[in-house]
Simulated assay, not measured.
Amino acid sequence: MEEIVKDLARILVPSVAQAEEEDERDYQARVKSQDTERRRLLGELMTAMSASPQEDPVLAKLSELALRKLDIQRQISLMLAYAREFVRPEPYRLRSLAEATGMSISGVRTAYTSDDITYIATEIRRKNNKGTIFPNQQSGAQSHEQDKPSSSGNQWWALPAKTSESSSS
């Protein structure tokens, strides 16, 4: 297993090559940085392996990377929703967003949901440009506790929220 961990550190933190016009001092700084990062990763993998000898380091790292990938995809969806639904005076163009993300135009168009728009409206406390989705009544701090944004914002078709005085439950 130790050999696998060392191989993973070499694979995930690749060796640096010196560019033709790169100063020797800059190159040595990059090599030092790469060595530091490789040692950090090696230590992290060895610690995980010693904590749970049955856990396979390859599968553990793949699982960690998959979670990071989901988080990044979530952030991209939220940024696309913000760029298309909240930026004023006009939204970013689909083509620009597609080029920036490496997605197709139709991929950008479908990358976010009304839940994402509601989440953003609640966080920035502003309705979307179309005026169809308004901020949720709960505070932004409370909405961070949710893994997925709620679609319980006051959309234009929703009934007005009850006040605490008028509700008995």
Score class of each variant (00 low, 15 high):
residue 153 G to N: 08
residue 126 R to F: 02
residue 50 S to G: 00
residue 134 F to C: 03
residue 8 L to N: 02
residue 43 G to I: 02
residue 89 P to N: 04
residue 59 L to R: 11
residue 95 R to H: 04
residue 104 S to T: 15
residue 86 F to E: 02
residue 57 P to L: 08
residue 1 M to Q: 14
residue 42 L to H: 10
residue 114 S to F: 00
residue 13 V to C: 09
residue 148 K to E: 09
residue 60 A to N: 09
residue 162 K to E: 13
residue 164 S to T: 15
residue 70 L to F: 07
residue 24 E to R: 10
residue 61 K to W: 13
residue 141 A to Y: 00
residue 71 D to S: 11
residue 167 S to L: 11
residue 24 E to A: 15
residue 56 D to H: 14
residue 49 M to G: 02
residue 31 V to S: 03
residue 17 A to T: 14
residue 56 D to K: 04
residue 113 T to M: 01
residue 83 A to C: 11
residue 66 A to Y: 02
residue 93 R to P: 02
residue 63 S to D: 09
residue 130 K to W: 00
residue 23 D to Q: 09
residue 102 G to Q: 03
residue 118 T to L: 02
residue 132 T to W: 00
residue 96 S to Y: 08
residue 136 N to I: 05
residue 9 A to L: 07
residue 27 Y to D: 04
residue 134 F to Q: 08
residue 89 P to I: 03
residue 146 Q to D: 07
residue 107 G to N: 05
residue 134 F to P: 01
residue 43 G to N: 12
residue 99 E to M: 14
residue 71 D to C: 02
residue 143 S to C: 06
residue 33 S to N: 12
residue 28 Q to R: 10
residue 97 L to T: 01
residue 64 E to S: 11
residue 52 S to C: 10
residue 148 K to W: 04
residue 48 A to N: 14
residue 25 R to W: 05
residue 159 L to N: 12
residue 83 A to S: 11
residue 49 M to C: 07
residue 31 V to I: 12
residue 71 D to M: 04
residue 24 E to W: 08
residue 104 S to P: 12
residue 118 T to N: 04
residue 149 P to A: 06
residue 39 R to L: 15
residue 143 S to W: 00
residue 117 I to H: 02
residue 94 L to E: 06
residue 104 S to G: 15
residue 119 Y to K: 10
residue 18 Q to A: 08
residue 20 E to S: 15
residue 55 E to K: 10
residue 67 L to V: 05
residue 24 E to K: 12
residue 111 A to L: 01
residue 68 R to C: 12
residue 61 K to P: 00
residue 95 R to V: 08
residue 52 S to Q: 10
residue 156 W to K: 11
residue 40 R to C: 05
residue 18 Q to Y: 01
residue 162 K to V: 09
residue 18 Q to F: 03
residue 114 S to Y: 00
residue 48 A to F: 04
residue 143 S to R: 11
residue 38 R to H: 07
residue 47 T to N: 06
residue 78 L to K: 04
residue 154 N to S: 14
residue 104 S to D: 13
residue 80 L to G: 03
residue 163 T to D: 10
residue 7 D to T: 13
residue 60 A to K: 06
residue 141 A to M: 01
residue 147 D to Q: 06
residue 24 E to V: 09
residue 164 S to G: 06
residue 133 I to N: 02
residue 43 G to R: 08
residue 44 E to T: 11
residue 48 A to L: 13
residue 167 S to Y: 13
residue 57 P to W: 05
residue 72 I to G: 00
residue 168 S to A: 10
residue 137 Q to T: 10
residue 141 A to I: 00
residue 17 A to F: 06
residue 99 E to Q: 15
residue 157 W to Q: 03
residue 117 I to L: 01
residue 66 A to S: 05
residue 134 F to N: 10
residue 36 T to H: 13
residue 71 D to E: 14
residue 85 E to N: 08
residue 124 I to H: 01
residue 147 D to T: 11
residue 37 E to L: 07
residue 39 R to Y: 07
residue 59 L to Y: 13
residue 167 S to I: 14
residue 76 I to G: 02
residue 88 R to G: 07
residue 144 H to E: 09
residue 135 P to D: 04
residue 57 P to Q: 07
residue 59 L to A: 14
residue 165 E to P: 03
residue 115 D to M: 03
residue 44 E to Q: 14
residue 104 S to L: 09
residue 165 E to I: 12
residue 16 V to L: 02
residue 62 L to S: 06
residue 7 D to N: 08
residue 75 Q to M: 15
residue 41 L to K: 08
residue 113 T to V: 01
residue 157 W to T: 05
residue 31 V to R: 04
residue 11 I to D: 08
residue 54 Q to T: 15
residue 99 E to T: 12
residue 22 E to H: 01
residue 119 Y to L: 14
